[in-house]
């Protein structure tokens, strides 16, 4: 009987979207204007999603709603078929949130691992050691003696080693120094596999431009753009031009020191370019019909 219910669960999860947000609205207590209004989104397993949005678009709120830390005023958020606000243990072992502001106890990292790892069934100590090496952190460090950036690195290393299906990061590169940012990128890429989904909310798009394989651009009403980087590269080209004459036919352009950033439709035979997330972000809001077509 147990086996049957387990198999049913596996099948249900397989045929359901991993994460489903249906018509959710959320309004903070004491405020009249909802931060998120009738928002819907579905995510399938696998990939690194970059969550982009203007200030006040509700990115952090959305992440908290996904984790079940907030209860939507209307609508529902489900992870593998379970309502996230219930915060059931089985679900929490599969979701890890790295918040923008991290609170770590004043104990040694070893002790922290010993106390927290038993809650995560897929935790891997060897992987943690690898990530700590990548972040140039010694496992014998004391968390109380670390700088904010080092604490963030230690927490990200632990989060990655927990091997949860869904890893959510809110502004993970804030507070990291320049080498820390590239160490972070390397760690994220090395942690990826087909069963894992990572959602990264960030303003620092330059830090993550080459890491993301999906882009989610949102406003309060919902997703303005949800597309893979490959699909974007297939349809659009991102260029820097110096001659104003080259702006003709551009979908979007913006003056920058020494020239213009331009986005064009990609014609046949035109080589792929790297996605400029800043340009894509602006394009998504100025030309929503086109971005929907992506």
């Amino acid at each position: 009987m147990k086996l049957l219910s387990y198999l049913c669960g596996v099948l249900i999860n397989y045929y359901t979207n991993m994460l489903k947000l249906q018509h959710i609205s959320y309004c903070y207590p004491g405020q009249v204007r909802p931060v998120i209004n009738d928002f819907s989104m579905e995510l399938n397993p696998g990939g690194i999603y970059g969550l982009l949005g203007a200030n006040g678009a509700g990115k952090s709120t959305l992440l908290y709603l996904i984790c079940g830390l907030l209860k939507p005023s209307t609508g529902s958020v489900s992870f593998m078929g379970t309502e996230t606000f219930l915060r059931e243990p089985e679900m929490l072992t599969e979701i890890f949130l790295v918040p923008e502001e991290i609170s770590l106890p004043s104990i040694s990292l070893e002790k922290y691992i010993e106390l927290n790892a038993p809650f995560y069934k897929n935790f891997n100590r060897e992987q943690l050691n690898d990530y700590l090496t990548q972040f140039r952190l010694d496992p014998s460090i004391h968390l109380g003696q670390l700088s904010m950036g080092q604490k963030k690195k230690a927490f990200v290393a632990f989060a990655l080693a927990c091997n949860t299906s869904l890893l959510i990061m809110d502004e993970p590169t804030n507070g990291l120094d320049i080498p820390g940012k590239s160490e972070f990128r390397r760690a994220i890429v090395s942690a990826m596999n087909d069963n894992r989904t990572i959602i990264i909310s960030t303003h620092q798009v330059r830090d993550l431009e080459r890491v993301l394989d999906h882009v989610l651009i949102m406003d309060q009403q919902g997703v303005v753009l949800n597309s893979s980087i490959a699909a974007i590269q297939n349809r659009l080209v991102f260029k820097f031009v110096q001659d104003p004459a080259e702006l003709n036919g551009a979908l979007w352009s913006m003056p920058v020191p020494g020239g213009y950033n331009v986005v064009r439709l990609r014609g046949e035979g035109v080589p792929e370019t790297e996605v400029n997330l800043e340009s894509l972000f602006e394009l998504a809001f100025t030309n929503p019909q086109l971005t929907n077509a992506l």
Partner: peptide, 10 residues
Amino acid sequence: RIVAMMVPAS
């Protein structure tokens, strides 16, 4: 609160 609420326990 985030840490306390996200610990995998009911």
